[in-house]
Simulated assay, not measured.
Amino acid sequence: MSDQLIITLGREFGSGGHAIAVELANRYGIKLYDHNLLDAVAAEKNVDVETLRRYDEKPKKLLFSRSQNGFSSSAEENVAFLQFEYLKKKADEGESFIVVGRCAETVLGDRPNVISLFVLGDREVKCKRVMEVYDLSERDAQFKMERHDKYRKQYHNYYCKDKWGDSRAYDLCINSSRLGFDETVNELEDYINRRRKMFK
Rank of each mutant, 00 (worst) to 15 (best):
H18Q: 12
H18N: 06
H18T: 05
A19Q: 15
A19D: 14
A19P: 12
I20T: 06
I20N: 15
A21W: 02
A21D: 01
V22G: 01
V22A: 14
V22R: 15
V22C: 08
E23L: 07
E23D: 13
L24I: 11
A25Q: 06
A25K: 09
A25F: 06
A25N: 03
N26I: 15
N26E: 13
N26S: 12
R27P: 10
R27E: 10
R27W: 01
Y28D: 06
Y28I: 02
Y28R: 10
Y28H: 10
G29T: 04
G29N: 12
G29V: 11
G29D: 11
I30E: 05
I30V: 05
I30F: 05
I30Y: 03
I30S: 10
I30M: 05
K31R: 12
K31Y: 08
K31L: 08
K31T: 07
L32C: 00
L32T: 02
L32V: 05
D34K: 03
D34C: 00
D34E: 01
H35T: 10
N36W: 00
N36S: 05
L37G: 00
L37Y: 02
L38E: 00
D39C: 01
D39G: 00
A40E: 10
A40Y: 08
V41A: 02
V41Q: 04
V41H: 06
A42W: 00
A42P: 00
A42L: 02
A43H: 15
A43E: 13
E44I: 09
E44W: 05
E44K: 08
E44A: 12
E44Y: 11
K45L: 13
K45C: 09
K45Y: 13
K45E: 14
K45S: 14
K45N: 15
N46H: 12
N46T: 06
N46C: 07
V47E: 04
V47H: 03
V47F: 05
V47R: 04
V47K: 01
V47A: 04
D48M: 04
D48T: 10
D48Y: 04
D48R: 03
D48N: 07
D48S: 03
V49W: 07
V49F: 04
V49L: 05
V49H: 02
V49R: 05
V49T: 03
E50W: 13
E50R: 11
T51D: 06
L52D: 04
L52G: 05
L52S: 12
R53F: 01
R53A: 03
R54T: 15
Y55E: 13
Y55H: 07
D56E: 06
E57K: 08
E57T: 00
K58R: 09
K58I: 13
P59Y: 14
P59T: 11
P59H: 15
P59K: 10
P59I: 14
P59D: 10
P59V: 10
K60A: 13
K60E: 15
K60R: 05
K61S: 12
K61R: 12
L62Y: 13
L62S: 06
L62W: 11
L63M: 15
L63G: 13
L63S: 06
L63D: 14
L63A: 15
S65A: 12
S65E: 09
S65T: 10
R66E: 11
R66Q: 15
S67I: 13
S67Q: 11
